[in-house]
Write a protein that binds this DNA or RNA. Sequence first.
DNA 1: ATAACGCATGGGC
DNA 2: CGCCCATGCGTTA
Length: 887
Amino acid sequence: MASTPVAAPASKICFNSDCKDLKSEIPRKGWRLRTGEFAELCDGCASAFEEGRFCDTFHLNASGWRSCASCGKRVHCGCIVSVHAFALLDAGGIECISCARKNVVLGSSSSWSQSLLFHSSVPEKYKEYSAKGWTQLAGSGPVPWRQAPSLFNSSVSQPELHSRVPYEVDLSTGIDRLNACDRSSTPSLEKKKVEDFSERLMNGNLKPETRDIQEKGNAGINFEDQRNSCLTKIQQSSLKEEASNPSFGLAVPYTSPDEAGQIGISSTHLRPNFQPSPAKQFHIALQNALDSSSETQSRNGRPRPDARGKNNLFPRYWPRFTDQDLQQITGDSNSIITPLFEKMLSASDAGRIGRLVLPKKCAEAHFPPISQPEGLPLKVQDSKGKEWIFQFRFWPNNNSRMYVLEGVTPCIQNMQVQAGDVVTFSRLEPGGKLVMGFRKASTASASDQDNEAKNINGVSMHADAEMADPTSWSKVDKSGYIAKEALGAKVAVSRKRKNSMLGSKRKRLRIDNEDLIELKLTWEEAQGLLRPPPNHVASVVLIEGFEFEEYEDAPILGKPTIFATDNLGEKIQWVQCEDCFKWRRLPSNVLLPSKWTCPSNSWDPERSSCSATQELTAEQLENLLPQCNPAASKKMKAAKQEPENVDALEGLDTLANLAILEEGESLPASSQATTKHPRHRPGCSCIVCIQPPSGKGPKHKQTCTCNVCETVKRRFRTLMLRREKKQSQKEAETTGKKQQTSLPDKVVDGDPPPCTNAENSSRKPKKDATEGSDDHPNRVKSSTSPFKGQIDLNIQPEREEELSPGSDSSSMMKLLQDATDIYLRQQTMLTTGGNSNSEVTQTQPGGGPGEEKISNSLNLGASHPDVDREPSAVFCIKTSAPTSATG
DNA sequence: ATAACGCATGGGC
DNA sequence: CGCCCATGCGTTA
């Protein structure tokens, strides 16, 4: 305060034109003017300002009062004093800063376009200045501000200074900020204060002006969020304090001349005379940095219809510097750092190519403008102070540009960062140096990221790593696939994605734990949807006295229903109408299409219309439906109250479970007390349904010749033959590398014990004996993992091959297959650790190959030594799966 | 053959 | 539907 008041308040009279009192000897500081100075006020006005009553006191009759779009509070939007108290909404109108923050926090990138706020175009005259840091500057800068003049010129009694051209002020502001750094450290402007102030402002009573706020934008996007990323030490230290400090208008902390250009201006755009607290400023700076990118392209601050979204940088690029990061960059100097953006290194970025793809907006916003693809050499300093020169250039891409930093390899290596790690870019003031820092994935905020990074590394490069944390992977894979499959989504796509993820693309593909859970649920849902194919009569085979149902087609996705027993002990099922959501009772043996509505209720004419009442009471329904998740229950309709119901559901899940089991751990052990085939219905006692989960029951030896084993073997053989036949045809065409030969042999070689194989050893020991033998139908199925070759009860070998991707059944199969593949992959990795991985790996690649191999292995015959590794792996997995899941 | 360079492709948002 | 961008791929050195 005491310092030098520059601008306006030269006189001895209170800066508040509505006041005229004399300032005290030591004038008190009020809001920051666009000149960077602070209004010097008399005690009374200063108090009013500090207490947030200023506008209420002096601007009550001024125009510019509006209501917060969210809470309705009155906020004065017409003067420099209150500039920070509100945020302009993209859609028009304003929101008090509190609501704005909340919204931002909650909805992140939603409707707030920070752009306007931070539009930081620098006036020509200042370009030089702002560009200072760059070798060449071209005006990448910010966009001129325009708009809102009406808003801000309003009747505020401020001297002309206030209404003056924003940038001038800004500029000075920027400078001022720099100088004010130290001051800022003082608690003067505290965020809290500011907030309070705003709050008060909002409580204003005046009517809003009709004037339209032309600009749209928002003011504070996640201040909170960015808090951590402060730049300067000072700032950092002050930030916290600020939180508790009340002074409202002190100096702005950081901002260098450059920044001034951007930050200062930008922030002022919307709020010309705004005097943010240090903290706030900081945030703004960040935002600015982020947004400016967009600004760059918009040449002016005009409200752009498309401002939303496009202009905002993706959150992933928001700088989230931690104190450590800052420290790392600034060292112990007193430099001020302005975080610009950050980016998680992709495999490409960290690869040998030495090209770091820059987010377009970030590049355009923070790097010097380039008009030629060749770009410019850019000097960047790393956190250790070492300077690197990268070529900042772009490639025309479609109608856009793709910006890259070339020659980053040495730097990347020097920093020892790799894909998954985050590199940060910031500007160091004074000097405007571009500083590149980094944050290892391991220290990255999100734990999942960590995992990912690790996984990535591990997966792509070190099998070991994967072994270290196989869980996450398998889960992801499984879930992902399954979910998609279940949903009938693009399996193929997911698969590709997945693969790439393994390699390096995980960034976009990340799935955190929560997602995993969801996916699992989806899996379960999918299971609940499995139905035998329509119009297919099961051929029943008796094996050891048990019925074995066979279908000529793969299961289909049907309408989930809830099986129950009515009062008379009759088995029934409840199905929910797609249209009216009412539950209708149907015979238990009815198979429904995936979409079912009341009019289709031929079993109960009285309730064959949506208008008919539901005979199930809410309470009954509640008992039937899963309790945990109403939504889910609605979706799934699978009920789990009664044991019977559970069984039924589980039965439906069998197929899916098998696949899951194969994959390993993920499946909640929940699903099985016994193994049931997809067509399982309450009361079904076929051999499949009475089977304990794989791995749990008695095992058949490979040499077992019981009916079950024989049958299974026979079927596999048939399947295999067909497969081979088909395959050979395909191969003839494609000439792929055949896995059969290589794999099987290898497997055999590597693992003396027939089925057992390496995999077993690595994961589930039990399996071994099994494969061939213990396999009960179920196991067989599961083992079939290849799904194509599956002997699934619901599928006939012959048909399997023909499954078309398009059909539900086929997709299911595919799903399973995918899952299997994934599993195998994982296994491979694991195995790799101790065995030869190549083989396994090969298997996976081609869907075709994989299948074949599988089939081979499947051969239940299984027990054949020639079985491929995968098959064995599959078996093992399956078998063990339960085990693993269980224990 | 290999690396570098640039453009093209395609999935995600 | 268009933009962004990670990566692939063809060409060139």
